[in-house]
């Protein structure tokens, strides 16, 4: 389809473009056609320069207005719909922001929405997981405008190009419906779970919040992000934003190390697309071993310090 025109809605924070953008662009390029990127919020112009250098981008629209900080759905959806007219496809990562904003955009445009796409078959046909990833559905959109969220980990980040042009658009401003009060974000010493190349997660087997230091020790040696199973979160060892799984974060790093995690379906749904999976568990019957490329039956309290020492 030569008349395909795609608008990728990129997230940015304090002028830093979200790392998911390069992966959404991989999905966009598989649709064919021209690709514009929309970057909005305070310091949007800095993030716009980063977006302009990503391969496949024809143009970047930058809208610098603090009304779009925190991706407030009411404000961002008004902006997107004001720009939507020439585009056949509107794409965003299926982050909590994308899943918050894009259905609102779709309803304002009077079209359906296709969530969490993991493969592009054609400009109107997509593959997406249903039933917590236990079934894959291939769906064809009947809408003239397709509003899509893309699962970033299912696509590869695109490379760099010489910068495309950056333009600005009129802000639709604050719709006056919602006020941002505060946020509590996990400290940023380690990489974020969503974009990490290596992740080490701990489970109930760690036994306490203090023992999670064993996980952190290995994480620091590997430059890895720290994750956790739902059991570890529910037991209060770590805050819930570290949870990997169906009801937490979906991750697919190059290396995923599961330590003291039994491997409940709900956890596997969140990490089974990792390239290499390592399981360390004292219970040799643990289901996690059935999906692990390398399994080590060992006492965590010996294996983890040894791993930290020898890496």
């Amino acid at each position: 389809m030569s008349d395909t025109r795609i608008l990728v809605i990129a997230e940015q924070e304090k002028g830093h473009l979200s790392s998911a953008t390069a992966r959404v662009l991989d999905a966009a390029s598989q649709l064919g056609g021209s690709i514009d990127v929309l970057v909005a919020g305070s310091q949007a112009s800095e993030a716009a320069q980063q977006a302009a250098r990503l391969t496949g981008v024809s143009g970047v629209i930058s809208v610098e207005d603090s009304a779009f900080d925190h991706m407030l759905a009411e404000n961002v959806s008004a902006l997107i719909t004001s720009l939507a007219e020439p585009y056949t496809h509107l794409l965003c990562a299926s982050t909590t922001s994308g899943r918050n904003v894009m259905p609102r955009v779709a309803a304002l445009l009077g079209v359906g929405q296709i969530s969490d796409v993991i493969a592009i078959e054609s400009a109107d046909t997509f593959v997406r997981p249903i039933y917590a990833g236990s079934v894959l559905a291939t769906v064809r959109s009947l809408d003239v405008k397709k509003v899509i969220t893309i699962r970033p980990t299912a696509f590869e980040p695109v490379g760099e190009q010489s910068a495309a042009s950056v333009s600005s658009a009129d802000s639709t401003g604050d719709q006056g419906m919602v006020t941002f009060v505060e946020e509590q974000l996990a400290n940023g010493e380690r990489p974020e779970l969503g974009g990490a190349r290596v992740i080490i997660s701990g489970g109930r087997g760690l036994g306490s919040a203090e023992n999670f230091r064993l996980i952190e020790g290995v994480a620091d040696r590997l430059g890895a992000a720290v994750g956790a199973s739902r059991a570890a979160v529910d037991a209060g060892y770590v805050p819930n934003d570290l949870q990997v799984g169906q009801t937490g974060k979906m991750v697919a790093p190059e290396l995923y190390i599961a330590a003291g995690i039994s491997g409940a379906v709900q956890h596997l749904a969140g990490m089974k697309d990792s390239k290499v999976i390592v399981a360390i568990n004292s219970d040799e019957e643990a289901p996690i071993f059935q999906v692990a490329d390398y399994g080590l039956v060992a006492d965590l309290f010996q294996a983890l310090p040894e791993l930290e020492r020898k890496l």
Binding site: S134, T138, F289, L307
Partner: peptide, 23 residues
């Protein structure tokens, strides 16, 4: 409905790899 379901499939299961004996 805004979409038609063309087909469904069960994703390929991951296979268990190898057991290692030591760190």
């Amino acid at each position: 409905p805004r979409q038609t379901l063309l087909r469904v499939e069960i994703p390929r299961e991951r296979q268990a790899g190898v057991r290692v004996d030591s760190v």
